[in-house]
Structures are given as C-alpha cells and as structure tokens.
C-alpha cells in the first residue's frame, strides 16, 4: 500500500469520525444532507458485497466494516434519534436523490468489467459515489452559513478523493497490469465536483472569514 492510498483512507476515516463526533457530542446534524448519507449507505452496501466472497486483508475487511457501519448508523441517527433528527434541515435538503440511482444502475448494466451481479453492483457503487455528494453541496449552498465541522467534513471527503487520484497515478506507474478505467473516470468526475467547494473553502480560510458559498 502506498502513502497516497493510506492517507486517502485515513482522511476518509476522519471525515466519518468528524461527522459522528458532531452527531454524538453536539447532538446535531444541521447542515448535513440525509440524501447524501443515504446514498453513501447504498454505495458501501453495494460495493462491499465481496466481503462474503473475497478476503483481501484484515485492514481491508475492518475498513469495509467501519464504512458500512458508520454510514448506516449516521442515516439511522438522522432519521430516528429523537434529538438529532430535530436538527435536520429537512426543508432545505430537497435534492431528489433517488433520481440519481436509475441512471447509475443503467450505466452499470452497460459499462462494467464483467456482466455478473457482483461486478454490476460494484460498477453501480462507483457511479453512485461519484454523484453522491451533490445533495450535500446543494444543501451547503442553501444554508449559506456553514459551521466548522460541516466544512471540515466536506473538506476531508474531498481530500480523500484527491489522494485516491494520486494513488491511482502512483500505482499505474509502479504496478504491472494495474488498469481500472471505471474507477478512474468516476473517481475523477467525483473529485471535480469538490473543486468548486474547495475554492470557496480556501478563500474563506485565507481571508480568515466564516465560510459562505455564493447563492
């Protein structure tokens, strides 16, 4: 495992921890899109079906279980926890996220590495992950004033994606037969979606002002 991949996994882990910290200690999910969290729960459930068929490493298995468990529990908290759910910006979080799922499924049926159930689900999870942040970005834009934890959550997610791109470049040049077009293209699309947010985040950080996105 190279340093980019490890750093990518760690920023991904930290992003989830930041979100759980916000929910557990502040008992608030203000500014967090339930739509995006539901999409992530579906992304990890459909991608990690190979937990039952393939063993890669203890690291791999533990990380998969963490991402599955955390994404499902975040959705549970936002929907059912009697205090947390009251802070959910339901009226602002109106992105019709289920409309993203059908095109991703059709694309997965058309473009996959092999036409098997696991491979189609794997491709579906990658296409869906690429666009899963959209409801969150729309919500950020609408809420205008973004608290630090929410900003850091999105920043860490974006860093995780950018580090994975570096990991792919590194692996392409150092490993033989390392070619994953589906992962690369959907991963790059996903990283570009964060670029706009990054721009405003660094502007506000540079000028030492509270992050505000333009309407």
């Amino acid at each position: 495992m190279n340093i980019f991949r490890l750093a990518g996994d760690m920023t991904h882990l930290f992003s989830v921890l930041v979100l759980l910290l916000k929910i557990h200690t502040i008992k608030s999910c203000a500014g967090i899109s339930l739509k995006t969290q539901e999409l992530y729960a579906i992304v990890f459930t459909t991608r990690y079906l190979d937990l039952f068929t393939t063993y890669i490493s203890l690291y791999n298995t533990i990380m998969k279980l963490i991402f599955l468990g955390s994404s499902i529990s975040i959705v549970w908290y936002m929907r059912h926890h009697k205090v947390v759910r009251r802070s959910y910006d339901k009226d602002q979080d109106t992105f019709r996220h289920y409309l993203l799922m059908l095109p991703c499924l059709l694309l997965a049926l058309l473009i996959n590495e092999k036409f098997t159930f696991l491979e189609v689900m794997w491709a579906f999870s990658l296409y869906l992950e690429a666009v899963a942040i959209l409801p969150q970005l729309v919500l950020l834009q609408r809420t205008r004033n973004i608290d630090n934890l929410t900003g850091q959550y999105v920043l860490l997610l974006g860093a995780y994606r950018a580090l994975y791109v570096l990991n792919w470049i590194y692996r392409y040049f150092t490993e033989e037969n390392y070619v994953h077009w589906i992962t690369w293209v959907s991963g790059i699309v996903q990283t570009l979606l964060y670029a706009d947010f990054f721009y405003y985040y660094f502007q506000s950080w540079k000028n030492n002002v509270k992050l505000q996105l333009p309407a």
Binding site: D50, I56, M63, Y164, V179, H180
Partner: peptide
C-alpha cells in the same frame, strides 16, 4: 490474477 480481478481498494 488479472488486473481487474482483485479489488483491493475501498
């Protein structure tokens, strides 16, 4: 194994 067989990334 073929390159696409082993999916070791998360």
């Amino acid at each position: 194994a073929e390159s696409s067989d082993l999916k070791d990334e998360l």
